[in-house]
């Protein structure tokens, strides 16, 4: 297992290095940032001055070697937009994204596991049919539409929740709920299907024969064996959330890393683009290691 983790770490770091090189050069091919930071009427001299003071006139390879030296010390430089350290901006935003993702993931795991398991226990029953319909709607719902409808109903209609922003627990309700819907639908289906297989496995029949009750059969015997595909799909969903939930962040004015990344790309804010990619890539790398560890915890055969 340790060898596996070491290999995983090495390959991830190599991928990260390749990613940084590719993003560095590609982002600089997307246009001159002076067009975005200076008025359209700016003179050629002003544009030249802008490029000079921001080091954009140097040959690309010189810019890259300077960047590579700094990045080793985790210095990504300053944002063109805000003149603030890029890493500081990204970490501020990433904390919001991380909180949003962790709360949502925890809720999804809890609710989807319970509902998916109960649906699988009585396949074809009323609960199963309702759960399947609800989860399929959730898995296919367009989140921007649900978000707007949610605001119209719960903020404007009932006046229970703020439309957007941050500042109180209430501000989290709609963003978390919207982020929750799609992974909930997907994970519920995965749990249900995995559990159907597990509940028909020989060891479950043995447990029934030994007189185990439904709760013990579901949560004691079957769920652990059904958990590997659930962990895999949940890991994939979580990686998506750590990249930032752009639609939710945009609609609800949540200052997360997804919107920061998109804005930085649109504004050719190179330092922030690279800092956000590195930070999210490291987070996903760590999460993948956690998933590997959870595989080992769930299935002793993977510990070898």
């Amino acid at each position: 297992m340790l060898k596996h983790l070491r290999n995983r770490l090495i390959s991830s770091l190599l991928s990260l290095a390749a990613l940084i090189v590719i993003v560095f050069f590609l982002s600089r091919l997307t246009g001159d940032p002076s067009a975005l930071y200076l008025p359209l009427d700016a003179s050629i001299e002003s544009r030249e001055n802008f490029r000079e003071i921001n080091g954009l006139n140097d040959p690309l390879i010189v810019q890259f070697s300077s960047f590579a030296k700094d990045i080793v010390q985790f210095d990504f430089g300053k944002s063109l937009r805000t003149s603030r350290p890029a890493l500081e901006m990204v970490l501020e935003a990433f904390i919001w994204t991380l909180q949003l993702a962790l709360i949502t993931i925890a809720l999804v795991i809890l609710v989807a596991t319970v509902i998916g398991s109960l649906a699988a226990f009585n396949v074809g029953g009323l609960f199963d049919r309702v759960a399947t319909v609800v989860s399929l709607i959730g898995a296919s719902a367009p989140d921007f539409w649900i978000a707007i409808v949610g605001i119209l109903i719960f903020s404007i209609g009932f006046g229970w929740l703020p439309t957007s922003g941050t500042g109180s627990l209430l501000h989290w309700v709609l963003p978390v709920a919207i982020l929750f819907i799609r992974p909930f639908g997907l994970i519920t289906q995965v749990v249900r299907n995995s559990m159907i297989a597990a509940l028909h496995a020989p060891y479950t029949k043995t447990a029934r024969a030994k007189g185990a009750g439904p709760r013990r059969i579901i949560f004691g015997h079957s769920l652990r064996n059904a958990a590997l595909p659930i962990v895999t799909v949940m890991g994939d969903q979580a990686a998506g959330m750590l990249n930032g939930a752009v639609i939710v962040e945009t609609i609800f004015g949540f200052p997360g890393v997804g919107k920061l990344m998109i804005d930085s790309i649109l504004m050719r804010d190179f330092s922030v683009i690279l800092a956000s990619i590195v930070v999210t890539a490291i987070a996903i790398l760590l999460m993948n290691i956690l998933i590997d560890l959870s595989y080992a915890a769930l299935d002793p055969r993977t510990r070898a």
């Binding site: 707007i148 439309t163 957007s164 922003g165 945009t250 609800f252 004015g253």
Partner: peptide, 10 residues
């Protein structure tokens, strides 16, 4: 708020 519909609802 970049979404102006939501901003108007505020």
């Amino acid at each position: 708020r970049s979404d102006r519909s939501v901003a108007a609802l505020m």
